[in-house]
């Protein structure tokens, strides 16, 4: 049995559903990220787990125990909010000590644990400051220390990185990931940033309009997105219309703008949509004919836009030191059969 179980979670505001039937489980020590566009119900799901939002229906259980009748202050959950929600009238030490005070931890033990927590987030030098005397990144680390010091059963992070600048965000992603591994705490991260979700989590759940569209390890969800929404939200992709010519189990023969190709997956009907990642498309002697429209240098890669009969395709090629293809050049695009996935919308 999984450590956290969420079954059929529904939350309505008036008649509109914010969360519309969400099921997932998280194993002990696992890092799950809930990824989705703004307003898709991520925070609502998280706050229902924390107990601050009462679900319209559904079941939430932690370690086999149903949470319906358990008040938020008895759930032993650590939360880092998007706004950090530090206590403005308390120093860093007082903020971090608050949860221990509530648990009536003896003063000496409390001081030790607060010091350890501040050391964990490298803030020992700022113990006596007030939150408004700290930078965004420091405030975030106070919030993290405050949530971790109570040794929670579950750590919930609600877009903790979204108010940090890009460089700091990259550092904090790695740092939070390291800390999570070190203290081996079951964690759910809510984010609308796909890089963050892929980078940090053991498993990613992609949400849209109150539902989980797909869930799995980052590379699997990325490689086999299953739906057009997921493939577009998780990184960039090319969506191409194709006609089905023949089927065999798990494999299809298709025609894309008159060119015959193979793809993996199952589909009914005569037409379907393919998702092909830009980095899987190569220039070759044969394949889909096209014309280079533009070429952008991205450091490690070149990004081409190629006009074809099937629409404009994005192609990412590694920079191997040579000159790129010229704009206007005629090319053929090809990709391995395993790179073309059938998606549904």
């Amino acid at each position: 049995m999984a450590f956290l179980e969420v079954q059929g979670l529904v939350k309505h505001y008036g008649s509109t559903p914010a969360v519309d039937g969400v099921d997932f489980t998280v194993e002990r020590g696992e890092f799950l990220s809930l990824l989705g566009p703004s307003g898709c119900g991520k925070s609502t799901t998280l706050m229902a787990i924390a107990g601050f939002i009462e679900p319209t229906s559904g079941r939430i259980a932690i370690d086999g125990r149903d949470m319906a009748a358990v008040k938020p202050n008895r759930r032993n959950i650590g939360i880092v909010f998007q706004s950090f929600a530090l206590f403005p009238h308390m120093t860093v030490t007082e903020n971090v000590a608050f949860g221990l005070e509530m648990r009536r931890v003896a003063a000496a033990d409390r001081a030790n644990r607060v010091a350890d927590a501040l050391q964990l987030v490298r803030l020992d030098a700022f113990a006596d400051r007030y939150p408004k005397q700290l930078s965004g990144g420091q405030q975030q680390r106070v919030a993290l220390a405050r949530a971790l010091v109570i040794r929670p059963d579950l750590l919930l992070l609600d877009e903790p990185m979204s108010s940090l600048d890009a460089k700091l965000r990259d550092e904090m992603r790695v740092e939070i990931r390291d800390i999570q591994r070190r203290v081996a705490i079951t964690t759910i991260l809510v984010t609308h940033d796909q890089t963050e979700a892929l980078l940090m989590a053991d498993r990613v759940a992609v949400m849209d309009r109150g539902r989980i569209q797909c869930i799995g390890p980052p590379h699997e969800v990325y490689e086999k997105p299953g739906s057009a929404f997921v493939s577009n939200f998780l990184g960039r992709t090319n969506l191409i219309a194709a006609e089905i010519i023949a089927r065999s189990p798990g494999r299809l023969r298709l025609a894309v703008a008159g060119v015959e190709i193979e793809a993996v997956g199952e589909a009914t009907g005569e037409r379907t949509t393919l998702s092909i990642r830009p980095e899987r498309v190569a220039f070759g002697e044969q394949g889909l004919p096209g014309r280079v429209e533009s070429c952008l240098f991205m450091g490690g890669q070149w990004m081409y836009r190629v006009a074809t009969q099937a629409g404009e395709l994005v192609v990412l090629r590694p920079n191997e030191g040579g000159a790129p293809l010229a704009t206007g050049a005629s090319v053929h695009l090809a990709w391995p059969a395993a790179a073309a996935h059938i998606v549904h919308d």
Binding site: R74, F81, A85, L86, F98, R146, I150
Partner: peptide, 9 residues
């Protein structure tokens, strides 16, 4: 901020 305090016990 109130929720944070609640979650801390």
């Amino acid at each position: 901020v109130e929720w944070a305090a609640g979650s801390l016990g």
